[in-house]
Every structure is written in structure tokens, then in C-alpha cells.
Amino acid sequence: MLKEAELILIRRKLHQIPELALAEYQTQKLLLAEISKLPQDYLEVRTVQELPTAIFVRVRGSNPEKTIGYRADMDALPVDEQLRSSFISQIDGQMHACGHDFHMTVALGVLSHLSEHQPRNNFVFFFQPGEESQNGGKLAYDAGLFSGDFRPDEFFALHVNPALPAGTIGCNAGTLFAGTTEVNVDFHGTSGHAAFPHQANDMIVAASQFITQAQTIVSRNVNPTEGGVLSFGKMTAGTIRNVIAGEVRLEGTIRGFTQPMIELIGHRLKEVAAGIAVSFNAEVNVTLNQGGYLPVVNDPHTTAAFISFMQNNSTIQFTQTKAAMTGEDFGYLLAQIPGTMFWLGVGPTSSLHSATFNPNEAALQKGVTAFTKFIENYEEINQ
């Protein structure tokens, strides 16, 4: 089994080669090299044309009744790292600012344990590309890559959490992460000279009214006990101060803890856009793209077993967590295959996706140990 010093070294190697969604070629090469060092008696390693940077590793069980899946995402973010260390990112403008280097390393640690201690059930490890922006989980599932011996009956995954102390396990029954939908809104009017506004159709004014009205959707259409988010982070409009803009583009996000809530917000957004189009005699087009970023809804059975074990094991620090508005494409896989996602504390450090995100490496061994202990117990109680 990989020792703590080895886990730290692997994590640092991965941290130096952060690659963006669906371009994780160096990352895949490093992972395959590490996997090849493990005992191969029970392992079957597979790469596929349909998702070239993905890795599937099947662990053959001794007396299998089911197949347990474990997913670790591989991609990084277009963030320029601001930390200074001996293992800083070697790729300009790219960084593992979401902790996927930790996710992969913990998965390798668990895999190394199972390669030496054959489990009773089969396992499938899915090293997944494209979580941050290309919904790699959905791509894999829709391509039929989880079939035959590589079809899990249950799926598990973790995400690092800077708000929890290093090594602390966090989880909750029900929704762990929100679902997310990208929103693009395009306004088409008529440009003109700023001195003659009556001869133009100002889309900056139309877009401003749209944004103001859109903010009433959450406050007046969403049940306050359920919660939802509608935020616009980007507006593109105009070319110069004395020309009225005839074109505007807004880009934003919808987030909700349930799929019906996300769909409600999207539906109301289109209705508001239709009203603005009439009011300003303009064309307003709303485009919604959710892809695979469904709410991460934990399965009652697997999650009850997970929480019970973590709570009752005195060697593991566990905390019940609340649902978070962050998004994760593991939600798509959990909508197809029951399972559980949980947090691994890596704090204290700055927030996820920040240029100074610096997770505590003491969490690596603790994460591996906690999950391998759970698996041993889980197989025992399910015999």
C-alpha cells in the first residue's frame, strides 16, 4: 500500500502538470505509470477511444456479489497559481485550484490497498477527465463506457473542502451539491449615435431591466425554504462611449438543490425575457445549458451506511455537512447509479478555485485510510 510520503510525492507531481478539461494527457501518463507499479494480480486497466484521457481500472473481487465504483476527476482550472513552492504548476495559467490532484492521489491510495488486499466485491476506478467544464461523467456514461464488467452497482467519490480541518470527513443524506445550468442571454436591438437615442434601440437599457427583473425570480418564485441562485457574472456590450449599443450578451448561472427548482428558474427566466422583448421591441434569446451538472443527490442506502460507519469509528473525524451551492458533474452519474459523494477536509486554506488554494497534505493519508476502512466494514456488513 502506498505510504504517506509516496502519496505526497505523487500529489506534488500531479500538481506540477495541471491540464484543462479533456486534455489531461500528461496526467494520464503519470497515473498509468503509478498504476503499473502496483501488484497486477487482480487489476485490469483500460483506456478508451471515446474518452481518450480517461482511465478505468477494474479490481477483481474474490467472491463478488456486486461492483463498487470509485471516481476521481483529473482536470485543472485556467487559474494562474500565486503560491511559491518547489512543486508549483509548470504550465502557465493553469492550476489544480479545485483539488483534483488530491482526488486522484487518494484514489491511487485506495487502489493500491485493494491491489494488495483483494476485496470480496469487484471494484471499478474511474479516473475522469473534463469535470470542470465538459461534464466528462456524462460523456462517459452516454458513450456506454460503464457496461459489462465495468458497470458499477454503486458509485463513490470525494471532493476536498477547505472549510473542514485536514482529514475530516463530511457528508449528508440527500443533496450534497447543487445542480448548475449555464445561462446565455442575447439582446438584439439597433445601434445609433448617443446624441439621437430616439433613432436607436438601446440594448444596454433593455439588459439592465432584464437583470433587475430576473432577480425577482429567486425572491418571489422560489420557495424560501428550498433556495436557488441566479447570478450574472458577465455582460458584453458596446464599442465606444458615444454609440448606443444595439447588441448585448449576458452570461450567468442557475443553481438549485433539486432539478425541478433549476427548471422553474430557467422557465421563469425565459418568461421575463419574452416580456422584455415586447417592452423594448427587441429580440431576446435565452440559451440554457445544463449538460451533466445535475444536483449531487446521495443515495439513502449507501449514504446511511457511510455516515453510520464514519460517525462510529473513533479514529475518524466526521461532521454532518449542509448542502452547498457548488456544482459537480458527479451528480449525473448519481442520477444513473446509486451512490455517495463526501467531503475530505483540507483546511485551513483559501477557497476552492482561488490562485492561493493550498490544501493540507496531511489529509491525503487520512482520506485513504478512512475510505479503505469504510470499504472493509461495508463489505463485511453486506455479506
Results as ranks from 00 to 15, higher is better:
residue 15 H to D: 13
residue 15 H to A: 14
residue 15 H to Y: 14
residue 16 Q to T: 13
residue 16 Q to C: 14
residue 16 Q to F: 08
residue 16 Q to P: 08
residue 17 I to C: 10
residue 22 L to W: 06
residue 23 A to R: 14
residue 24 E to A: 07
residue 24 E to W: 05
residue 25 Y to P: 02
residue 27 T to Q: 08
residue 29 K to V: 04
residue 30 L to C: 09
residue 30 L to E: 11
residue 32 L to Y: 01
residue 33 A to Y: 01
residue 34 E to W: 08
residue 34 E to P: 03
residue 34 E to R: 09
residue 36 S to D: 11
residue 36 S to M: 02
residue 36 S to I: 04
residue 37 K to Y: 04
residue 37 K to Q: 14
residue 37 K to S: 12
residue 38 L to H: 09
residue 38 L to P: 02
residue 39 P to S: 11
residue 42 Y to C: 12
residue 42 Y to M: 06
residue 45 V to M: 04
residue 45 V to Y: 01
residue 45 V to E: 02
residue 46 R to N: 10
residue 48 V to A: 12
residue 48 V to D: 13
residue 49 Q to P: 13
residue 49 Q to C: 08
residue 50 E to V: 07
residue 51 L to D: 00
residue 51 L to T: 05
residue 52 P to E: 03
residue 52 P to F: 00
residue 55 I to A: 07
residue 56 F to A: 07
residue 57 V to D: 07
residue 57 V to C: 12
residue 61 G to W: 11
residue 63 N to A: 15
residue 63 N to E: 13
residue 64 P to M: 09
residue 64 P to Y: 11
residue 67 T to S: 05
residue 68 I to Y: 05
residue 68 I to V: 15
residue 70 Y to R: 05
residue 71 R to W: 01
residue 72 A to E: 05
residue 72 A to G: 07
residue 73 D to M: 00
residue 75 D to M: 00
residue 75 D to Y: 01
residue 76 A to R: 01
residue 77 L to T: 02
residue 80 D to R: 09
residue 81 E to A: 12
residue 84 R to L: 09
residue 84 R to K: 15
residue 85 S to Y: 08
residue 85 S to D: 14
residue 86 S to H: 14
residue 87 F to A: 03
residue 88 I to P: 02
residue 88 I to M: 13
residue 89 S to I: 06
residue 89 S to G: 10
residue 90 Q to K: 15
residue 91 I to F: 07
residue 91 I to G: 02
residue 91 I to K: 10
residue 93 G to Q: 01
residue 94 Q to G: 00
residue 95 M to E: 06
residue 97 A to Y: 01
residue 97 A to R: 00
residue 100 H to Y: 08
residue 102 F to Q: 05
residue 102 F to A: 06
residue 103 H to C: 08
residue 103 H to T: 07
residue 104 M to S: 10
residue 104 M to H: 04
residue 104 M to P: 12
residue 105 T to Q: 07
residue 105 T to M: 09
residue 106 V to H: 03
residue 106 V to S: 05
residue 107 A to T: 06
residue 109 G to V: 13
residue 109 G to W: 05
residue 109 G to S: 11
residue 110 V to F: 04
residue 111 L to V: 10
residue 111 L to G: 06
residue 112 S to V: 13
residue 113 H to T: 13
